[in-house]
Design a protein around this nucleic acid. Structure first.
Length: 849
RNA sequence: GCGGGCGUGAUGGAAUGGUAGACAUACCAGACUUAAAAUCUGUUGGGGCGUAGCCCCGUGUGGGUUCGAGUCCCACCGCCCGCACCA
């Protein structure tokens, strides 16, 4: 018998599936449908081992669902717009489109070698005009529905390159290419009204039973629904047009501990005051010399500027508080102004101590040691559900929870004409404008006479011009000689096209819907969308837990409101799974000046370089080119075959956790698959009759049950472990040929979602009918799973001391009696009687002495 | 800084609140071989004792709940993800 040869076998089966159209999605009303989708990749040019893991997982689900009689949709495409293409254009003088499509061709060839059960007939790239044209059509529908609008917003501005930078392009507050200090600059930009859906997006999280709790929690926190009080402090001698400062607080119960009022540097009052206060103008300018990233703002040192203005406390007009401009207050959230209560907010306390402002606790712990913040202690911020003792309360009981105090404080303030209770959300509208070339053009025209005019749908797609150069920074659409010049769609007069393109998150917010009818001349086809939506299982990295998934959830709702998706698809992903990364060790030495030098795994043997230098090993690090710890899937496939790569990334680690790639692990996976082939051959050559047929049959059913459970619950690593164990059982079995062949065929079927090529080969060897990919999934017989006897551990005071083997259904008191008879229990009791005996039938006995 | 998560042998990990370490890697020993590779078999959490057996310790650290905690609660330490223009 020949050894199993992945090199010849894998392309053969890939061709067989292809020719049979095995994975082409077909609507079939006789079957339940199943839509499995992995987050589509950015076409960087090369498949990454992380992709292999992501797509191997989706493939397990897709192939399993096909075997269990579903009409499966398992498509693939390309998230093809974005910055890297423009960077490549700038660095290598190549058009972003040429670069992108070349990368797609490359990656598609690599994908093909993995043997994934994808329906390539539905493939598209988001940079295809057929795709982004439909996106433009939807943008116009959104515009008509009032879901899109324009307003001013700040961007990172590079004053040397005269261009807008992405947060990623800002390093330590400087532009990555120019090195110039980045400034915040206001531009008029397009926004989606995602905040109109805040309540719905939050409430609907409760219906997502098959989403990870952590993702739902993150989204809920991001949407950030809060209940609070909005009121105004009256200004003492405010400048013209300003007699009050509106503030929003979620802790109105701390109002009597207020110490100062802080406003954002971008607050209208701050902007007015800086007109004739050069010092403040300098301070504000300093604050604006920071990127727009919230993380940067939060980490920056808390700084303030005393405006000299004073406000009156609403409940004590004699009490005046200073007004500071503070760099940590965001104009985008609430009213852009707050009151600071240092005793109960760490940030406010840091600020108060820095500027020598008063600190006054409004509540204390009900009991226990407590160093008050005014006496040098830390800010006291207990959970709102915890009862505390109010010492400067102004409404309600002395002892109550923060939640209760907030309720009465709002009621009291409303009754006394101080503001009103309001609900606010942290979620901001989604700014979609990008001042870049390689994105979907926003289909509107600016006309001097008519203003902003939507492009006519029959003129779509508004295609990107091909003849652009990236010699100078900035948006090539802006400086293109003719592309901008168009007649106004409304009055026909000469007008200018919008040169902003759309955020690439827009592209990825509806691709899942487009996959249901990729060739439709409208964004979606109602019949196809109704049949295939929702995505039954969505799979991708946790890094997308908030933005991509929230935007997609919004988009599905907006599409539904515009008639592009059925009501049932408002919440588009029924189940979500977030998988972990593939990591690898880093091999590092240091050069003469102590700087790290990284080495490729292939240059390192037994922790040493070829010249004998010992390398430092940094374990489990995220793969990155600069650290030289990237594993190339193509090399692995060349060496071992796709099945080995797939088997490895599914084994060992639970799918939601990171998995470390090791050469030894890949070797082991490869050896095991070779062994499985030998075991299958051994089964086909086994003697006609043997012993233990019944036992092997029982093991076969247990394996079916366990492996199926593993797949159903996304525990692929446990399914793999179970298949190892079953292979061990089968290789040792002395059963007759029929039983062994049956077991080997089942093993091949259970492995088929993970190692489809090897499984097809075994299936053919053992006389399976047709393709294993189409064979119905094996069923476990429940009666074969249960043993007649169980072994139960006996614990004494919670520690295992003995075990007994009893009939599975033995009565509780009989089990107890048997347990008490054991030597260990007799010894522990020493003639006395037990205090308590806990018997959990079939599981455990615990004797308390 | 804020939000979320993770932490178990030498290593990856398993374990509906119920025998911690399944399965695999690595190591060691044995079989086969002139030899090696490949393959097959077996051992392996740490410590101790009167060593066919028995005892103690052990799931990042410290507390708590429970008959029983890797699992639940609190605090701390470390690492990872996200923070609205990377995708």
């Amino acid at each position: 018998m020949p050894r199993y040869d992945a090199k010849t076998s894998e392309p053969r089966w890939q061709k067989a599936w292809d020719e049979a159209g095995t994975f082409t999605a077909r609507r079939d009303d006789a079957k339940p449908k199943y839509y499995v989708l992995e987050m589509f990749p950015y076409p960087s040019g090369n498949l990454h081992i992380g992709h292999v893991r992501n797509y191997a997982m989706g493939d397990v689900v897709a192939r399993y669902k096909l075997a269990t009689g579903h009409a499966v949709l398992h498509p693939m495409g390309w998230d093809a717009f974005g910055l890297p293409a423009e960077n490549a254009a700038q660095e290598r003088k190549i058009h972003p489109g040429d670069w992108t499509y070349a990368n797609i061709a490359n990656m598609k060839a690599q994908f093909a070698r993995l043997g994934l059960s994808l329906d390539w007939s539905r493939e598209f790239a988001t940079c295809d005009p057929e795709y982004y044209g439909q996106q433009q059509a939807m943008f116009l529908d959104f515009l008509e529905k009032g879901l899109v609008y324009r307003k001013n917003a700040v961007v990172n501005w590079d004053p040397v390159d005269m261009t807008v930078l992405a947060n990623e392009q800002v390093e330590d507050g400087r532009g990555w290419r120019s090195g110039a200090l980045v400034e915040r600059r206001e531009l008029t930009q397009w926004f989606f009204r995602i905040s109109d859906y805040s309540d719905e997006l939050l409430a609907a999280l409760d219906t997502l039973d098959n989403w990870p709790d952590k993702v739902k929690t993150m989204q809920a926190n991001w949407i950030g629904k809060s209940r609070g009080l909005q009121f105004a402090f009256g200004l003492v001698d405010g400048p013209d047009g300003h007699d009050r400062i509106e503030v929003y607080t979620t802790r109105p119960d701390t109002l009597m501990g207020a110490s100062f009022v802080g406003i954002s540097p971008d607050h209208p009052l701050a902007k007015q005051l800086e007109q004739d206060n050069p010092e403040l103008a300098a301070f504000n300018a300093e604050c604006r010399k920071m990127g727009t990233a919230e993380e940067e703002l939060e980490k920056a040192e808390k700084r303030g500027f005393d405006t000299g203005l004073r406000v009156r406390h609403p409940f004590d007009t004699a009490w005046e508080l200073p007004v500071y401009v503070a760099n940590f207050i965001l104009m985008d959230y609430g009213t852009g102004a707050i009151f600071g209560c240092p005793a109960h907010d760490a940030r406010d306390l840091e600020f108060a101590r820095k500027y020598d402002l008063p600190v006054a606790s409004t509540f204390e712990p009900v009991e226990g040691d407590h160093t008050a913040p005014e006496d040098g202690g830390e800010a006291y911020v207990p959970p709102k559900s915890q009862p505390v003792k109010y010492v400067r309360g102004f409404a309600g009981d002395e002892v109550q929870t923060g939640d209760a105090a907030i309720d009465v404080a709002i009621a009291f303030c409303e009754a006394n004409g101080v503001g009103q209770g309001v609900t606010k959300f942290r979620l901001r509208d989604w700014g979609l404008s990008r001042q870049r070339y390689w994105g979907c053009p926003i289909p509107v025209v600016h006309c001097d006479a008519c203003g902003v005019v939507p492009e006519k749908k029959e003129n779509l797609p508004v295609k990107l011009p091909e003849d652009v150069s990236f010699d100078t920074p900035g948006n090539p659409l802006d400086r293109h000689p003719t592309w901008r010049d168009v007649p106004c769609p409304s009055c026909g007069a000469p007008a200018k096209r919008e040169t902003d393109t759309m955020d690439t998150f827009v592209d990825s917010s509806w691709y899942f819907a487009r996959f249901t009818s990729p060739g439709a001349t409208t964004p979606t086809d109602p019949v196809e969308a109704a049949y295939w939506m929702n995505v039954d299982q969505y799979i991708g990295g946790v890094e997308h837990a908030i933005l991509h998934l929230l935007y997609a959830r919004f988009y599905a709702r907006a599409m539904n409101d515009c008639g592009h998706l059925p009501d049932a698809a408002r919440e588009p992903f029924d189940a979500l799974f977030t998988q972990g990364m593939v990591t690898h060790e880093i091999y590092m030495t240091k050069d003469a000046s102590g700087r790290p030098v990284y080495h490729l795994p292939s240059d390192v043997t037994d922790g040493k370089l070829a010249d004998g230098t010992k390398v430092e090993i940094i374990p489990s690090a995220k793969m990155s080119k600069s650290k030289k710890n990237v594993v190339d899937p193509v090399e692995i496939i060349d060496q071992y075959g796709a099945d080995t790569a797939r088997w490895f990334v599914l084994s060992d680690s639970p799918p939601e956790r990171d998995v470390e790639w090791t050469a030894a692990g890949a070797e082991a996976a490869s050896k095991h698959l070779a062994r499985v082939w030998r075991i299958a051959e051994g089964a086909s050559d086994a003697p006609e009759t043997g012993s233990g047929d019944e036992e092997l049959e029982r093991e076969r059913h247990k394996a079916i049950h366990d492996v199926t459970m593993g797949i159903e619950s996304f525990g692929f690593n446990t399914s793999v472990a179970r298949l190892y164990a079953f292979a061990n059982t089968l290789s040792k079995s002395k059963a007759g040929r029929a039983a062994q062949v049956r077991a080997a065929r089942t093993m091949a079927q259970l492995m088929a979602p993970m190692t489809p090529h090897l499984s097809e080969e075994i299936w053919r060897l053992l006389g399976g009918e047709g393709l294993i990919a189409n064979a119905p999934w094996p069923q476990a017989d429940e009666s074969m799973l249960v043993e007649d006897e169980v072994t139960m551990p006996i614990q004494i005071n919670g520690k295992r001391r003995a075990e007994i083997t009893v009939p599975r259904d033995m009565a509780k008191d009989a089990v107890e009696a048997r347990a008490l008879e054991t030597h260990a229990v007799q010894k522990a009791l020493d003639g006395g009687s037990p205090k308590k005996v806990i018997v959990v039938p079939g599981r455990i006995v615990n004797v308390v002495v």
